[in-house]
């Protein structure tokens, strides 16, 4: 079984686009059973329509797609209302935050009210991580420290760093905060996908493809190739996601 914890559907105003049919076809081709689907950035700064679209997809493809909502914390109370509505009324299962595209620091106090809401409804928070100015893993960790009851998933192994230097940072913060997890898309092989589960437990890593930006076949292969026991790979590919998504 494979659960992909990080996909997008829609036409992003920043250029990338994918349709629900393309996502489903891609899942079929790569034998992905369930995908977490996130809204792309559009000209609607409140993400209301996109969140409704995620809820529609979740209903239409029940058991195959799990919808996350997205908000812009810069928009304060309006976004708080939208987040609460997305979880309580639309039934979306988590929150994705994109500090780079919405331009806010993940550990800014303006983010805190949204974490209170996620905590109240017990939904996980997926953070587009690895942008040193707004969502370096240390910044995500600073937020995770304040909300120990919340589960934070850092995308891309917690880093977007071709030097590899941020791997040490990811290892450090993962060791310190048990409510931090990483998602595997684009992660390094040995220091990321192999080291974290071996050192800190199989439950700390989730498979994600970052469709349509990255290639799902390659991202699956990245985990298959890791020198890890079968049990660890099962945790990464689906067991951890089942638990977090309460499936």
């Amino acid at each position: 079984m494979i659960i992909d914890f990080h996909t997008y559907v829609g036409a992003s105003m920043l250029g990338q686009r994918s349709t629900e049919e393309e996502l489903l076809e891609n899942m079929e081709r790569n034998q992905v059973d369930i995908s977490v689907v996130c809204p792309v950035k559009t000209i609607d700064p409140f993400f209301e329509k996109e969140n409704q679209y995620m809820a529609m997809l979740q209903k239409k493809y029940a058991g195959k797609l799990v919808g996350f909502c997205r908000i812009d914390p810069n928009l304060g109370k309006d976004s708080e209302r939208i987040l609460e509505n997305s979880i309580r009324v639309l039934g979306l299962k988590g929150l994705v935050l994109h500090p780079w595209e919405e331009t806010f620091a993940i550990n800014d106090k303006k983010v805190f009210p949204f974490m209170e809401i996620c905590q109240e409804y017990h939904v996980p928070v997926l953070v587009e991580t690895g942008y040193p100015w707004v969502s370096h893993c240390f910044q995500v960790a600073s937020l995770a420290e304040k909300y120990p009851e919340l589960t934070f998933i850092m995308s891309h192994g917690g880093q977007f760093d071709s030097s590899g230097y941020a791997l040490t940072d990811v290892d450090y913060v993962m060791n310190k905060y048990a409510n931090l997890l990483i998602e595997t898309s684009g992660d390094y092989s040995d220091e990321g996908i192999e080291n974290i589960p071996t050192r800190l437990g199989y439950h700390r890593v989730l498979f994600g493809s970052h469709f349509p930006w990255l290639n799902t076949e390659l991202e699956i292969f990245r985990v298959q190739r890791a020198s890890l026991p079968r049990e660890a790979k099962e945790c990464i590919f689906y067991r951890n996601a089942l638990k977090i998504l309460k499936i």
């Binding site: 092989s189 040995d190 290639n215 390659l218 990245r222």
Partner: peptide, 17 residues
């Protein structure tokens, strides 16, 4: 590849895809 930190087989597959 940037191996050994990156897996050469993954890097090769990337180019093949």
């Amino acid at each position: 590849t940037d191996a050994p930190c990156c897996d050469p087989l993954v890097e090769l597959k990337k180019v093949q895809l």
